[in-house]
């Protein structure tokens, strides 16, 4: 799985499930501030990412996550 595939997946989830406008999404976009993702959305996003990647994601690993890039980095280092 490449960073690019992961980005496309996250973008897809944000657009379809969380109704974020595609044009707002970028690597540096802050999930909570720019994309209006709340704590429940973040939990749901992690569930989707777990299913997609098949990796175990611990909540601590997501504590510091702010941007789309942070999400990708957090998953790539697993």
């Amino acid at each position: 799985m490449t960073r690019n595939e992961l980005y496309k997946f996250i973008e897809g989830i944000l657009v379809e499930k969380f109704e974020v406008e595609k044009s707002k999404i970028s690597m540096g976009a802050n999930l909570y501030e720019h994309l209006e993702i709340d704590s429940i959305d973040a939990v749901d996003l992690v569930v989707h990412l777990k299913e997609f990647t098949g990796k175990k994601i611990q909540p601590e690993q997501f504590k510091e996550v702010r941007t789309v890039e942070d999400v990708i980095e957090a998953i790539m280092t697993l």
Binding site: S39, I40, A42, V43, V46, V47, P59
Partner: peptide
């Protein structure tokens, strides 16, 4: 309360 998904 620590794990969001677990809590839900």
């Amino acid at each position: 309360n620590d794990d969001g998904a677990g809590l839900l």
